[in-house]
């Protein structure tokens, strides 16, 4: 830091000479574009092939070397085939319900907990804080066996409850919202109190509506991680009818390896919602990026 401070004192005289730098920058840019282009092709290829491959017939995908674009026409019927082979409709519904359940659950429990941490006279605040923090340090994989045994003995395998219950609260979400609540202007809080608003009223008619960006960030993160879950749904479900779409497509692969087009069509169906979230919700995703810094 000291070196940058030193240099900043000697800048004034040079301030009037930016134009000569132009050519150098553009030459550098050409190189940058080139490298960027190569990386672009490599990184985006799986995305491209997933999409294009989902529309290719077996004449294209099963020859060697396989075609890189649909030479022998488009085959949108791959999507219909994918839907037919596994109960994809059911699985889609299961995934939607699981995602909504986890998202709503996490929003509710996190809002309440964050509110208590910021606005209420909580006794042993430090202790409870540590409790919430510690939940973020325990990898779920290390406690997945007892969770499986629990859900099995409760007869909740193959149910939405079994898929969602373990994830209805989150330390990450609580801290994300706590951070946002902490910056809430105290004048507004006091004004609401003077007007006779109790905790519940203040929370739901003032704080929550004004914290929409943070709630959206948490909602998107919950939805993404719930929709994309793999290990837990693999254990918590057995009946193909009650499995989530993620499990469905992974079995599509093993059940019908000779039709990559159909397999990729299934992948695209599973990918569609999260792709939209990442393209249009990036602003909110970035908001939540480092809130889990303790994880």
């Amino acid at each position: 830091m000291t070196s940058t401070l030193d240099t900043s004192t000697s800048t004034e005289p040079q301030e009037a000479s930016p134009p000569p730098k132009r050519p150098r920058r553009s030459r550098r840019n050409l190189g940058s574009y080139l490298i960027l282009g190569v990386l672009f092709v490599i990184v985006l290829f799986p995305v491209y092939y997933g999409l294009v491959g989902s529309l290719m017939g077996e004449r294209d995908t099963n020859s060697f070397p396989p075609a890189l674009w649909p030479v022998h026409g488009l085959h949108p019927e791959n999507y219909g085939d994918a839907l037919d082979i596994i109960p994809l409709g059911n699985q889609y519904l299961t995934s939607v319900l699981q995602t909504l359940g986890i998202m709503v659950g996490q929003l509710v429990t996190s809002v309440l907990a964050a509110y208590a941490f910021v606005f209420l006279p909580l006794r042993w605040r430090g202790f409870w804080f540590a409790v919430f923090l510690s939940t973020m340090m325990i990898p779920f994989e290390s406690i997945i066996i007892p969770n499986y045994l629990l859900i099995s003995t409760w007869g909740l395998k193959d149910t939405i409850a079994g898929l969602t219950l373990p994830f209805l609260a989150t330390g990450f979400g609580t801290f994300l919202l706590r951070q946002s609540f902490l910056s809430f202007p105290t004048e507004l809080r006091d004004a609401a109190r003077v007007d006779g608003a109790g905790h519940f009223r203040f929370l739901f008619s003032i704080l929550v509506p004004l914290s929409r960006p943070s709630l959206a960030a948490l909602g998107i993160w919950s939805a993404l991680s719930a929709w994309n879950m793999y290990f837990w749904p693999l254990l918590a479900t057995e009946d193909p009818k009650h499995q989530t779409i993620q499990i469905g497509i992974s079995q599509l692969q093993s059940s019908d390896g000779d039709s990559p087009g159909m397999v990729l069509a299934g992948v695209m169906l599973a990918l569609f919602p999260t792709l939209l979230l990442v393209i249009f919700g990036q602003r909110f995703i970035v908001r939540g990026l480092t809130a889990g810094a303790v994880k």
Binding site: V43, Y49, Q246, I249, P260, L271
Partner: peptide, 24 residues
């Protein structure tokens, strides 16, 4: 470049499974 972030472990793995297929 952020698109890979949208992929679940299952969707990405299945696509890579197809790409890695030794025969085709």
């Amino acid at each position: 470049f952020a698109l890979p972030f949208a992929f679940s472990v299952a969707t990405a793995s299945v696509i890579f499974g197809v790409l890695f297929n030794p025969a085709s």
